[in-house]
Design a protein around this nucleic acid. Structure first.
Lengths: 114, 114
DNA sequence: CCGAATCCTCGAAGATACTG
DNA sequence: CAGTATCTTCGAGGATTCGG
């Protein structure tokens, strides 16, 4: 079932998922590393707090973009991977990334307080 | 001059521009209407306040994605259009839009409080 | 190691009123 | 018509502590 019109609400919903401070970077990191444990992810995403990483992962998991595997071990081990839907989003994000890389120098305003 | 590596800071900079509440919709609306006046834009973007529309437009203008033409008339008349750089971003945004339309139903979590 | 729980700050964003 | 100026609210996100 394919929709023919652009639905603002659908876009809003998706933007709400990926337009926070870290989600895009979580997704990109997962797409590079394939499988990543929580701690490794936190190290790769320099600057993110545990709380926000957890929140970001939970949100992505709740929206089926990310899969979470818990191993019943001591010490705990939890692996995160992109779902197939999550993977299908990656190329589109990478397009924006590429655009960004090619255009930042030109758009970057002198006044960084904008 | 083309860069070969993905620069997180560049991406952060661009995401900072387009990941607020309205910028994406401003850009999409401008890409449809080509030329839009302030008031018309506010009507099209149902729900946006004058303050946020102004802020959004100033930010986009400051980053050269949007152009602003002021007519010295009474009553005032100001037209907004996408710059060529802004236009070059549109297809990438539309790709995400299309992905969103095609996948929201599947990813939408039951718990809307996520 | 992987979080959950708590407290706190700060800026995004809304509401309202005013102006050239 | 196209904003600016204030005031206020609200929640994203940080820091820290605690637990299985």
């Amino acid at each position: 079932m394919k929709k023919n019109v652009i639905d603002d609400c659908d876009l809003k919903y998706v933007l709400d998922i990926i337009s926070d401070k870290w989600s895009v970077f979580v997704i990109l990191t997962l797409s590079e590393k394939k499988v990543v444990r929580f701690n490794e992810l936190q190290k790769l995403l320099k600057g993110i707090s545990q709380k926000m990483l957890t929140a970001s992962l939970r949100k992505l998991e709740g929206n089926k973009l990310v899969e979470r595997r818990v191993f019943g071990e001591i010490p705990p081990k939890v692996e995160y991977t992109l779902s197939s839907i999550g993977l299908s989003l990656v190329p589109h994000i990478k397009n924006v990334v590429e655009w960004a890389v090619n255009n930042v120098d030109e758009i970057k305003s002198v006044d960084h307080n904008l």
